[in-house]
Amino acid sequence: MSILVDEKTRVVFQGITGESGSLHARACIAYGTKVVAGVTPGRGGQKFDEKVPVYDTVEEAVKKDGAEVSCIFVPPVGAADAIIEAAAAGIRLVVCITDGVPVIDMVRVRRFLEGTNTKLVGPNCPGVITPGTGPSSTGGCKIGIMPGHIHKKGNIGVLSKSGTLTYEAVGQLTALGIGQSSCIGIGGDPVGGLDFVDCLKLFNDDPETQGVVLIGEIGGNAEQRAAEWIKANMKKPVCAFIAGRTAPPGKRMGHAGAIIAGGKGTAAEKMAAFEAAGVKVAPTPAEMGSTMKSLM
């Protein structure tokens, strides 16, 4: 078991012929992901790398190749529309990697998704991975831009707003011999898809997951809501890290959502909420793996 995706998941890449889309589609295929189709409007009928059929629309990829999950590498100007197209075609999970999607577009997307069964991860995220049993964790399902080889199949869920900090946590876990059930980067934008609580629910219900590493950052209150939910519902140990303890207020720290506004959304506030909920907070980003280990 795992959450959201596994080695049987059938994936379509939207924007497969673009520079990043093609690069990462290849890396995902090499990892073992079943990339059954690609979509680039105007390129229907072509083959990607002489193997993967390319269609003009997501609908065709669903009908002809049974695509169920989509991975989006469409530039910001068309990203929101790409998500809506995927949801309208009946895709059950959309992973949007694109960085720089206007927030008002995402407000509309979220409203549209309310009437569907589609889950969204991202945008501005590294994606979702369920490590496999092969060498360097291949044979699993990697949907996104994370380096596959640092993973190891196992029982810890990793959940994060940040890309590279997720790699850091995964690297530390793997070095300690601790494998991962699934890793999800939910992205750092103010309005996105699945949030911490949505993902914690999935990990809580997944029999294979025995603990969760949660990586948050300054801005908003998603971490505080996660802490409340953990206190009331979580049956498994959770270790957390919050990035941005030293971030100055009022400055956007890379991620559109990472900003301390009106004195709210500080790291201290979030760490206190987690501690009050019985979550162990890693004192430094170098101790995310060892803190998780101490809870097992």
Binding site: D99, I145, S160, K161, S162, G163, T164, L165, T166, Y167, E168, G188, I215, E217, I218, F241, A243, G244, R245, T246, A247, K251, M253, G254, H255, A258, A267, P283, T284, P285, A286
Partner: peptide
């Protein structure tokens, strides 16, 4: 590289008694 790691790098410098001069994310 990466906003989260860049913030975490500032944090760990401070943790060991240093002071970061900047946040700099060169991106993915």
């Amino acid at each position: 590289n990466g906003a989260g790691l860049a913030m975490a790098t500032m944090d760990i410098i401070k943790h060991y008694g240093g002071e970061p001069a900047n946040f700099l994310d060169v991106g993915g």
